[in-house]
Computed example of a mutant assay.
Amino acid sequence: MSTKEKVLQKLKTTTGYVSGEQLAQELSLSRTSIWKAIKELEKAGYQIEHHSTGYRYQPSDVLDAVELAEGIQQPVAIRVLDSSVSTMKDAQLAVLNGEEPPVLVVADMQEAPRGRFNRPFFALEKSGIYMSILLKPDTQLHELPQYTVLMAVAVAEAIDALVGVDTQIKWVNDIYLNGKKIVGILSEAMMDVESNSLKHVIIGMGINFSVPQEKFPAELQEKATSLFADRTPTITRNQLIIEIWNRFFDLLEQEDADYLTVYREKSFVLGKQVTFQRQNQQYTGKAVAISETGELIVDLGSETLALSSGEISLSAIQ
């Protein structure tokens, strides 16, 4: 553990002020080393209050692998990056390197963020959560859409609980707040060619955490927002990440977890007219149900279609 990490850990576990002299004595370091460590921590974004009696740690919105590991109740290998081209690719690389799941990759910035159908999405440094997790398939879940549905529920409920809002889920993998997108979720399966079975699951997401509304590109101003677009965050990104994964793993371990009911209750599309394309033909119908395997059931009047998340993207919802 580096000097900076030792000082940070000591500050976090001390409720009041702690003097530089006390830090130096307890950590067997010089006063100069303590001062330099404090400056390095502040440069990294940590909030440290200075007082005549010493230093005191203040909740800081800095992604911290140690804090995440301590907060997430399931053992997870955690990697925090300043920047990543794609955390999904980082998770895929973990498979090639033979790393044992679960592996969670979290980045402060994603340079080439992509969603479903390889669509780009907006990212802003230190203002979002960009993360992907590598999992081994659970015996209770045999299909990829189930992971996507479960993940959407965990994210929506975590946000609602910590921020005090009421999010909705747009089929199949977007979280909305006040009619605008705040989260995109992407799931990928890695198959065993010989047995044609699910070998690994990678779930990635981008969360607009504290992106100011004016920072979104003009074409996204009416479509996207962030949790704290016009106010100071009341929680840290670490706290939200921890809450999301604790809820996800809790649902994953429950054999009778009724996450589909929550998914349907929070649906942004059920009961509305939706427009989509299938085989180069455009359809419009009413979204009437979500199946047990996550398909969207649409009533076209003349027939009913079951839409799969892998083949269809809704182009309009009214």
Rank of each mutant, 00 (worst) to 15 (best):
Thr167Cys: 07
Val269Tyr: 07
Lys199Pro: 02
Lys36Glu: 14
Val149Ala: 07
Ile290Leu: 05
Val153Glu: 04
Arg247Ile: 03
His50Glu: 13
Ser19Thr: 04
Phe216Arg: 01
Arg79Met: 09
Ser308Cys: 11
His200Lys: 12
Met205Tyr: 09
Thr304Asn: 13
Ala37Val: 06
Val183Asn: 06
Thr15Ala: 15
Thr167Gly: 04
Ile182Gln: 08
Ile182Pro: 02
Met205Pro: 11
Gln277Asp: 11
Gly16Trp: 12
Pro113Thr: 10
Thr15Trp: 00
Gln47Ala: 10
Asp64His: 07
Ser195Leu: 09
Glu5Ala: 15
Met151Lys: 10
Pro120Asn: 15
Tyr57Thr: 06
Lys43Arg: 13
Gln74Val: 14
Glu5Ser: 14
Ala123Ser: 15
Met205Val: 12
Arg56Val: 04
Arg264Ser: 03
Leu251Ser: 10
Ala112Asp: 09
Thr284Gly: 07
Thr304Val: 13
Gly206Pro: 02
Gly164Pro: 05
Ile207Pro: 04
Val153Phe: 02
Ala156Trp: 00
Ala289Ser: 03
Ala24Lys: 00
Ala316Arg: 12
Ser127Phe: 01
Asp258Arg: 11
Val80Arg: 01
Gln110Trp: 09
Arg116Glu: 10
Leu240Phe: 13
Asp230Leu: 10
Val193Asn: 12
Met109Gly: 06
Leu124Gln: 12
Val95Asp: 04
Tyr57Leu: 11
